[in-house]
C-alpha cells in the first residue's frame, strides 16, 4: 500500500499529509506516540520543502517490512537543493537570547524518526524517513 500526495504551497497543506501518516500508521499497527512523532517529523520536512523548494511538494507514504516493519515517508521538492552535511544542527543551549529561533526542522526530523536519509541536488531533494512499528506499551 502506498499513498502519494502532491501538496500545493498553501497554508496548512502539511496537515493533509499528517492525516495520511495517522491513517497509514494506524493501519500498520503503530502506537499513537509513534504516529505523532512521525507526523511532526513529516510536517517539518514538508515545511522545509515548501519554504526552500519553490513549488509543489510530493509526499510518498508506505509500509515496509524488509528488515523490520516500519512506516516509510519520503518528502520531495524541486528546489535548488542543499548540502545535508552543512545544514544547521541546532542546540537547545543557544536558543534563548537568539534573535532567530528558526532552523529546527532537520534536527527534529533526525531526533523523532528512526532512520533519515537525505538526497539533494539542484532540482531534486528527497528526505526519506523511517519510523519502526512498535507495539503499544
Amino acid at each position: 500500500m502506498e499513498v502519494v500526495l502532491h501538496l500545493p504551497v498553501v497554508p496548512n497543506a502539511e496537515l493533509v499529509a499528517a492525516k495520511a501518516v495517522e491513517t497509514l500508521g494506524r493501519a500498520l499497527g503503530m502506537h499513537q506516540t509513534q504516529v505523532e512523532a512521525a507526523s511532526v517529523a513529516m510536517v517539518e520536512a514538508c515545511l522545509n520543502a515548501m519554504e526552500h523548494g519553490g513549488g509543489p511538494v510530493t509526499v510518498r507514504l508506505r509500509g515496509d517490512n524488509h528488515s523490520r516493519p516500519c512506516l516509510v515517508i519520503e518528502v520531495e521538492d524541486h528546489g535548488r537543493g542543499f548540502d545535508p552535511e552543512r545544514a544547521p544542527r541546532n542546540s537547545s543551549s543557544r536558543v534563548l537570547g537568539s534573535t532567530s529561533k528558526r532552523g529546527w526542522g532537520l534536527t527534529l526530523i533526525r531526533e523523532l524518526m528512526d532512520e533519515v536519509q537525505i538526497q539533494s541536488a539542484p532540482g531534486r531533494t528527497v528526505v526519506a524517513m523511517r519510523k519502526y512499528v512498535e507495539s503499544a506499551p
Binding site: 506516540t33 505523532e36 541546532n90 536558543v95 527534529l108 523523532l112
Partner: peptide, 16 residues
Amino acid sequence: TPTIAKTFEIMGLVQY
C-alpha cells in the same frame, strides 16, 4: 503528549 514533550526537550523549552 510524549511527542510534544520530546519536541520541547529537543528545542530547549523544558530546560527553562
